[in-house]
């Protein structure tokens, strides 16, 4: 799942949440959940129009991407309504959604062919093109268009990795935060057939081929060797403080 310049996105948010979509590159609207329809209809927040529901927004704008800034208790309802409204890509930033609710929304997504990123994701960045979520996508020292795909559970560590790539002159093709929750959806995010390889400074990096020009698209072949570099933080933490360390037998 790659955010494109042409993506049309909605932001279902708490009334005080700020919009963090790139308004120059993507069309954005709010679905004003948590307020009565009469209060939200025809209004705008951060110069972005508010619709009464995601379904209404999809009907009026033809949008296909939604991002959720919804508290855990009501996230399931919001997600399912976005999925049923025909949203194709749903970015769920909320942390601590009950596992049962996460399973329910994954099931709803599977029924409707919706792709979910998250929950508890920092979002997606296609440097120089599009951005959904809470990453510092517009900070030039962190993100710059390049050829290394970055997949991370953590927003902060993802930021650090992208920063290091930019500082070393490489940049990123795309960043995907797969979410830190137990039932997040990494398989769909990372198993995309739109993976390709590229030579860059003598090393091979996994990259997402979202920069194809529409005429030519390389598909990942089985014999395409890829270099995947992994970084796991926490080597200096005390063994007793490590999360989910199995007890030695």
């Amino acid at each position: 799942m790659i955010m494109r310049r042409s993506s049309r996105s909605s932001c279902s948010a708490s009334p005080d949440a700020r919009a963090v979509l790139d308004r120059e590159n993507a069309r954005l609207w709010h679905a004003g959940r948590g307020r009565r329809q009469s209060e939200t209809r025809g209004r705008a927040h951060c110069d972005v129009p508010i619709f009464a529901s995601t379904a209404q927004a999809v009907r009026d704008t033809g949008g296909d991407v939604a991002v959720m800034f919804i508290p855990p208790a009501t996230a399931r309802k919001a997600a399912v309504s976005a999925i049923e409204a025909g949203i194709k890509h749903l970015v769920v930033l909320t942390e601590h959604i009950p596992a049962q609710d996460v399973m329910a929304l994954h099931a709803a997504a599977a029924r409707h062919g919706t792709r979910i990123v998250g929950p508890n994701t920092a979002g997606l960045v296609t440097p120089g093109e599009c951005f959904v979520g809470i990453m510092p996508a517009f900070v030039p020292s962190v993100f710059k268009p390049g050829h290394v795909g970055v997949i991370s559970r953590s927003g902060s560590l993802g930021t650090l990795v992208c920063l290091e790539l930019t500082q070393s002159g490489l940049g990123q093709s795309a960043f995907i935060g797969i979410g830190g929750d137990r039932c997040s959806a990494p398989p769909r995010a990372t198993r995309s057939r739109r993976l390709t390889t590229t030579r860059n400074r003598g090393r091979r990096h996994r990259r997402r081929n979202w920069r194809h020009d529409g005429r030519r698209r390389r598909r990942l072949r089985q014999d395409d060797a890829q270099t995947v570099a992994a970084f796991i933080a926490g080597a200096a933490s005390l063994p007793a403080r490590r999360w989910a360390t199995p007890a030695p037998s």
Binding site: L157, L160, A233, G234, A235, A236, S237
Partner: peptide, 9 residues
């Protein structure tokens, strides 16, 4: 977390 790793490094 990475900061601690690099301090130790």
């Amino acid at each position: 977390m990475t900061t601690m790793d690099v301090i130790r490094h």
